[in-house]
Write a protein that binds this DNA or RNA. Structure first.
Lengths: 187, 187
DNA sequence: GTCTATACCGAGATAGAC
DNA sequence: GTCTATCTCGGTATAGAC
């Protein structure tokens, strides 16, 4: 019982995450999500009392997913290597980014504009990675500058993702990633 | 006749632009826009055959508005001054950006995700400014590098706007603008 | 050309049988 | 716990009087 409950709930969250990424959270109807997750529409409300609550779960899932990456990177031996791993990951995702935008940024900005309770909660999709980046810079001995350096890296990431997506040009990611790596290497 | 027609049409476009910026284009209903523009709802369809067409007009209006700024900057004597003017303008808009995001980027990304005909048309909101930036770099003697340099500036702009907005922190703009100006000055 | 009334549809959400 | 049928609301879009 508990098992299948988790399964359906999880399926709804993951499908919601996928469709929100592809078409936007607002754009993806509960009917679409339910169908794609092989769950009857009305049944969604057994797991979530409103669409907003599913959105919340999607944000959490997305964050958890990013934290898994962080843990992986944390196993690398030096802070600088960890920073490079972060940037390499952007490069690797470039096709996805050109096609659908940044998975974190897209949802964060959409929910932010939507307003309401989700707006505030979605901010962690930005702040959490920046906190991690800051920690790396601090570990590399950049002290009080670390926050600004972290903001710069994340901001460069969001910028290249937005432009690559909006202007439909994967080369933007390639060029900007190269520049960002040089910048980190030269610090 | 022609006069009042233009007035209402213009009012609808400008109000649409304002509300799309504040709440998103999808989120702003025709009823809201019409009411705010003091035009009866049903009458909207005399001027635009569908909401999509109003969206198109909004994109064009936004672009025209940006082009006015370009013309102003074009009157400055050197390409480098023009680049600084572009960046200064970001700095000046920082409060607006924190509150509602980038006027160009927000709409461009939303419409892009929406898909459809508007998706392609909205891309000019990104490509047009980048073309202008490229021209400045070319004028400053950067030859074939100009395009990449332009992309970098615009990408930095979009990044700082997104992060400042999403993380609700105006300081992001201040810091990043400073960095960007140093970068341009050192070229 | 202008406006009112309304059709129509798709969305989120609920009731209640099983 | 699970699913079907249905309600309600708000949105776009249209018909047609003036």
């Amino acid at each position: 019982m508990r098992k299948t409950q988790l399964d359906k709930r999880t399926r709804l969250i993951e499908t919601g995450m996928k469709l929100a990424y592809q078409r936007g959270f607002r754009e993806a109807s509960l009917a679409d999500i339910a169908e794609a997750a092989h769950v009857p529409v009305g049944n969604v409300y057994y797991y979530f009392k409103a669409k907003e609550e599913l959105g919340e779960a999607v944000v959490e899932r997305l964050l958890a997913q990013f934290r898994e990456l962080q843990e992986e990177w944390d196993r690398l031996s030096s802070p600088k290597e960890r920073l490079f791993a972060f940037v390499d990951n952007i490069q690797r995702s470039k096709d996805q980014i050109v096609l659908r935008g940044c998975p974190l940024g897209g949802l964060c900005l959409e929910l932010h504009k939507e307003g309401g309770a989700l707006a505030k909660k979605s901010a962690v999709l930005y702040t959490d990675p920046m906190v991690w980046l800051e920690k790396q810079f601090r570990g590399a001995g950049h002290g009080e500058d670390s926050r600004k350096l972290a903001v710069h890296v994340f901001s460069a990431f969001q910028g290249m993702a937005a432009v690559a997506y909006g202007a439909n040009d994967p080369e933007v990611v390639v060029t900007e990633v190269k520049r960002l790596k040089n910048w980190i290497a030269a610090l």
